[in-house]
């Protein structure tokens, strides 16, 4: 599993970070999210699915 943040959609709700702090990081500049890993390890895949379901902007893209 891979995941990315659609930068044009993310406005910093931070819900993905709440779901999976091991995978997402929030910018010190504007609070928007980015992904810290290339491939999502098995043990965090469910949390990343939850992150996708918690984003009001649908900015979390699992591929």
């Amino acid at each position: 599993m891979r995941v990315r943040i659609k930068a044009e959609r993310c406005v910093g709700h931070a819900m993905c970070y709440l779901a999976a702090p091991e995978i997402f990081v929030l910018s010190d500049e504007d609070g928007r999210a980015s992904v810290t890993v290339d491939v999502v390890p098995e043990e965090f895949q469910e949390a990343v699915r939850q992150a996708a379901r918690s984003c009001p902007e649908e900015a979390v893209d699992i591929y």
Binding site: V11, G12, H13, A14, M15, L18, A19, G31, Q50, A51, R53, S54, C55, P56, E57
Partner: peptide, 20 residues
């Protein structure tokens, strides 16, 4: 409750800047 995709801080580019 989680996931919780609430919009209490708004949505779109004007979303609340002070939420943190």
């Amino acid at each position: 409750r989680f996931p919780n995709r609430h919009i209490a801080f708004g949505a779109g580019m004007h979303r609340c800047i002070g939420s943190f």
